[in-house]
Amino acid sequence: MGRFGSRVGADASLPRRNLLIGGLALAAAACQNNAPLTASDSRPMKLDALEAEVGRIADRCRPGVLGVGLMNLENLETWLLNGERPFPMQSVAKLPLGAAVLAEMEAGHLRLDEVVQVQETDLSPPFSPVADAWPQRTQWTVRELLAEAVGQSDNTAADLLMRRVGGPGAITAWLVSERIEEVRLDRYARELQPQSVGLMPFRSAWRGEAAYLQAITAVPPAQQQAATARYMADPQDTATPRGMLNFLQKLDSGQLVSPASAQLLLTLLKQNTAGATRLRAGLPPNASLFHKSGTSRTIQGVNPATNDVGVFTLPNNRSYAIAVFLSGTSLDGVALDQIIAEIARAAVRAAG
């Protein structure tokens, strides 16, 4: 793909079950990424203007790389910028993790009231209220861990759930079985996060933000830079914008979990106020949104990952999946959030 985006459309034919946002809409038949698609009777998006606007934003991100995906969930009309490029997910990965946990629960392989014991060797890097509460608190239910992982982006909670359902490979295998092949989980947070900044796997002495930051600061700058470069080039623990739209569409249409589980996931996502200055800031006040953001630490002036993905519904009841990934930028956090908000505003204009 070149600098600008690609576009596809789809035939609307089946009733769409919008489980996460609600509202009435026409439906769309599922399609594969590169299948030939035809025009839909649904109102088309204004893709030329979107392409030009997002292209200008991408120029401002250089030398970083911007990836964007937007899909009309009525007819699966899709626009992509760097749609096939893998981007580091960071905490965006906790959204497919949450769906996988609920799918395992529905299959009868675990219970939400099941108690999980937290050992010292289970602790993971910040952000982690579960780690901060240890050893005063050592028992959590699966439901509580799910709330912490999905709702609060807790790394220890995510790692405990990941282990409980069979590890990162089991989650990726589940995604592939659901024909989601461009979203992959490969490592626990206690492995990924330290590696991305030049540290060895996490140790309990680094528990808490102050201790962990001190450990990072002790890593020589050249070693930090090399680790960050490896992390940004690593295909592990990544998603493409195309793959994330595929995941969001399947989740929204009820192909991955039941309506009750989807509603639980939505409730947990709404508890997370992180990322409020990203997609949420670019949408009209009366639009609905469920989303999951992800952010890496800025190392030696480079930010490997600032992301936000989700589904929004406009007052006209049209719903759209959106995925925004930024990697390798030298912009500060405020500027990065503003860029994602600008992309959301451009998406709303494209949707009309």
Rank of each mutant, 00 (worst) to 15 (best):
E144T: 07
G208C: 14
N155D: 03
L245K: 11
L146S: 10
G243Y: 13
A233H: 04
Y212I: 04
Q225Y: 07
R207Q: 14
S196A: 07
T228C: 13
S128K: 04
L146D: 11
A227N: 12
Y212E: 12
A133S: 15
P168G: 10
R207M: 10
A147Q: 12
S177E: 14
A211P: 08
A233D: 07
V142C: 06
Q224G: 11
G169D: 13
Q193C: 01
A222E: 15
R203K: 14
A227C: 08
L185N: 04
R164N: 09
S153I: 02
P126Y: 00
R190M: 07
V183K: 03
D237F: 12
V130L: 05
Q223M: 13
D154Q: 06
D132V: 08
Q224R: 15
G208L: 13
F127E: 10
R163H: 13
D159W: 01
D154W: 02
L145D: 03
Q225W: 06
F127V: 11
P235I: 04
S128F: 04
T156P: 06
Q236D: 14
Q224D: 12
L145N: 06
R203G: 12
V142D: 03
P126R: 00
A226W: 11
A211V: 04
P194N: 03
Q236L: 09
R179L: 14
G169R: 09
